[in-house]
Amino acid sequence: MNDSPIFEQIRDEISHTDVVLFMKGNPVFPQCGFSAAVVEALTTLGVKFKGVDVLPDPGLRDGIKNFSNWPTIPQLYVKGEFVGGCDIVREMYATGELKELLKNKGVEFAAPSEAAD
């Protein structure tokens, strides 16, 4: 790992906020279906998270890929640890693993017992 300013910025971001989603667009207006899918999973679970839009900053957009050694956006971090991209988060959400992970990491979320509608 080197200490480029971008890496510093990313480290700062993921160490100060429990749940950080590097995404395209923002949680209210995601600009990519894959990012939107992760926002939806997190929102359904009632997790408080920070969305970081990578589109306005090519340095960050490339930087996060190198930082995580992961080639695509979105990317989810929980308590400073990389969880995965869209497919992984969606699958973990479906199996209940995501809930388990948040619980184990001591992240609060408001998920009611999978209320219908």
Partner: peptide
């Protein structure tokens, strides 16, 4: 988009796939 399974997992899931999300123009 990846779906990575072992043969056993694939069988258990009955070979179903998850639909990919639509583009939002980013």
């Amino acid at each position: 988009s990846l779906r990575t399974l072992t043969a056993e997992e694939w069988q258990k899931k009955g070979g179903e796939t998850v639909a990919s999300p639509p583009c939002l123009g980013g």
